[in-house]
Simulated scan of single mutants.
Amino acid sequence: MKNIMKKTFVAAALAAFVLTSCGENKQETTTAETENMEHHEGMAHGDAMPAEGKVVVETPDYTSVAGPVKDQITAIVDSYLKLKDNLVASDAAKAQADAKAIVAAAEKVDVSGLQGEQKTFAEERLGEVKQAASKIAESTDLAAQRSHLELLSEATFALTKGFGAAGQTLYYQHCPMANDDKGGYWLSSNEEIRNPYFGDAMLKCGSNEEVYKK
């Protein structure tokens, strides 16, 4: 009888552990998950800003470059911000259309006037933008779309900073629970956190990690 009771207790404890683990489905409503979500949502609500001068994405300074490149990169950013907003809204169809617009905008960037390392940097980052945006454009599955947001965000931010192409202040934001708890970044024109990796499920989970002013 004691062995049976012991096994029952162990089984019950194991079940409780599984139910409260971070790896369970985000839609479960256990107390442990609720507290975990509240903790991460409390990390930032737009009032928590990074230290002055903090840099997450290192880029060369090509801001003196003349020509249409800056405006063409700004077009990428504009389409990116629409994509991000539609991922926040969990609208896969609109996000797909936005991703196609990003690819089109990236293909229009004229790097012929750039020289040496400037051209190499632009081509590499534009390649990453097109790669990630194309993957998003191929799918209407939100999870699949969101899995490519990290690369798209970093490449877009690097291009923007490198060539001084921001038409507005941009916030580089981070959620530690995105991408299976590996973390994920995204760009926003608003310091208030609106999480594109989880949408309404964890809307305010994240923090501002870098600010780039126009």
Rank of each mutant, 00 (worst) to 15 (best):
M1W: 14
K2H: 10
N3E: 09
I4N: 08
M5K: 15
K6G: 00
K6F: 12
K6P: 03
K6Q: 09
K7I: 03
F9R: 04
A11W: 11
A13V: 15
L14W: 08
A15C: 13
V18C: 07
V18Q: 04
L19Y: 13
L19N: 08
T20Q: 05
S21H: 14
C22E: 06
C22W: 08
G23I: 06
E24F: 09
K26S: 07
Q27W: 14
Q27K: 15
T29Y: 13
T31W: 15
T31N: 15
E33S: 07
N36M: 10
H39A: 11
H39G: 10
E41S: 08
G42R: 09
H45W: 09
G46H: 05
D47R: 11
D47N: 14
G53Q: 13
K54H: 13
K54R: 14
V55R: 08
V55E: 05
T59Y: 12
P60K: 11
P60F: 11
D61F: 11
Y62Q: 01
T63C: 02
T63P: 00
P68I: 06
I73D: 00
V77W: 02
S79G: 07
Y80T: 00
Y80Q: 00
Y80C: 01
Y80L: 01
L81N: 01
L81V: 02
K84G: 00
D85M: 03
N86S: 10
V88N: 00
A89I: 03
A89R: 00
A89S: 05
D91W: 09
D91C: 04
A93S: 13
A95F: 01
A95V: 01
A97K: 13
D98T: 07
D98K: 05
A99G: 07
K100Y: 08
K100H: 12
A101W: 07
I102L: 07
A104D: 09
A104G: 07
A106W: 09
K108N: 13
V111S: 02
S112N: 13
S112R: 13
Q115G: 07
E117F: 06
E117R: 08
K119N: 01
E124M: 12
R125W: 11
G127A: 11
A132H: 12
A132Q: 09
S134K: 14
I136S: 01
I136C: 05
I136R: 02
A137F: 11
A137M: 12
E138G: 07
S139E: 02
S139H: 07
T140G: 03
D141W: 10
A144H: 14
A144G: 06
Q145E: 06
R146A: 00
E150Y: 08
L152P: 00
A158R: 01
L159V: 05
T160L: 04
T160P: 06
A165P: 09
A166E: 11
Q168S: 14
L170W: 02
Q173D: 05
H174A: 03
C175S: 10
C175R: 02
D180N: 12
K182T: 08
G183D: 03
G183V: 05
G184C: 04
L187R: 00
N190T: 12
N190V: 10
I193S: 01
R194E: 10
R194H: 15
N195D: 12
N195P: 11
P196I: 01
D200V: 11
D200A: 15
D200N: 15
A201H: 14
K204E: 12
G206N: 04
S207C: 10
E209H: 13
E209M: 10
E209S: 06
E209P: 09
E210L: 05
K213P: 09
